[in-house]
Design a protein around this nucleic acid. Sequence first.
RNA 1: GGAGAGGUGGCAGAGUGGUCGAAUGUACCUGACUCGAAAUCAGGCGUACUGCAAGGUACCGUGGGUUCGAAUCCCACCCUCUCCGCCA
Length: 427
Amino acid sequence: MLDIQLLRNNIELVSAALAGRGMSFDPSRFQALEAERKGLQTRTQDLQARRNALSKQIGMLKARGEDASEVMTEVGTTADELKRNELALAALLDEINAIVASLPNLPHESVPRGRDESDNVEILRWGSPRAFDFEPLDHVDVGARLGLDLEMAVKLSGARFAVMRGGVARLHRALAQFMLDVHTREHGYTEVYVPYMVNAASMFGTGQLPKFEEDLFAVPRGDDGRLFLIPTSEVPVTNFMRNETVAADALPMKYVGHTPCFRSEAGSYGRDTRGMIRQHQFDKVELVRIEHPEHSWAALEELSSHAEAVLRKLELPYRKIVLCTGDMGFSSAKTYDLEVWLPAQKTYREISSCSNCGDFQARRMQGRFKSGQGKNEFVHTLNGSGLAVGRTLVAILENYQQADGSLSVPKALVPWMGGVEILDPLR
RNA sequence: GGAGAGGUGGCAGAGUGGUCGAAUGUACCUGACUCGAAAUCAGGCGUACUGCAAGGUACCGUGGGUUCGAAUCCCACCCUCUCCGCCA
């Protein structure tokens, strides 16, 4: 959530920044509501003050056993007006809050301006795509021989799910364990286990609600009558901070969690329909950091380098891009995407997204720390995939396939595979 | 699923219609005492909005209601705990 003071005092700056995100925001409506709010609020508070004072008087009179009927009629005359003002003010505040809650974060000044993904800027490439002496298959065909069974998943659940057996299933598990171990042992993150279903307040805190409800799966239960399946562990982990004020020396907090992620993929019909690039359910190892505002930009560099480290260890060629203003997510102030090379598609595909959300999420969830002078300030929140496990599996299937239908296990992963170096096709 | 108890400030814990944003203890901060610390004493110590300031307004799980006035009464909901049953 943006700072409402910024909207009140510097709305041109906000609307210009939002225009850069491809969002047309008309300040006039907000300003009209704000003008109305100001008058209504002071009027209401004056009436409340008067009522409180008179009521106090009544109390004192009655305590002394005197007659209070005159004061009581006096209060009575303003009761209606007060009631009307209070209702109108509440409605007005709801309206204003709804507007503010629907506005995305402002891009950091270092973010390149642009309309869409074609304006993203490549920062680096690492590794070089392998030269095949045979025509590489895509991960669906490679995986089918090793135990990836997408048709079975269709029978069980429908499109965009996966069943894995044998070596592929183990590889999938090993990847998640490997990533968790790298981040906890080498990068200093604390492992966490979290709920896969969260309430609406948590979804609001990280920015999925109210605008992106259609992307979520809901289970009819809990608050508002339902819980939501998490689309990323960023949601439960970042919400650790919801309604919390921590000591300054509690920062930074560095968490890594491995969870399944559930996305309805509404509106992506026809995109990535083949294979397990885009699934309703996929595993992800997620890095979350709660940072002091002064350190969050350095933390973003570090966080993304931690995600890169996994790709490097697995020797998967990738590139790093910075998303332009028009391609960033709702809550982010700056985002790096990591894209892994997929030989069958002969292109780089997103495998990690690392963002600094600044105080945007912290403000939505009232996540604060006590700064030096005992003042409460909003923390900065960051998150990044380290990495998306399903897509990492895809990348390994494609990049490490062999002509005979087997798969060579990346060296770094062998210890997590119990020493297995080659996955042979299932009979 | 059945029965019961309860949600108040960092924590503990009073408060059952009026001068209560809330006693008291504890933690914490400042000062005094001390060579220093402990102990003791004095003062301070929630959040947000608003105002140049004095101040004002809101907040006692959440949302409604009653009342001139609600932490306190009524209704609904959420959550926590205890016991029994069932259960991975």
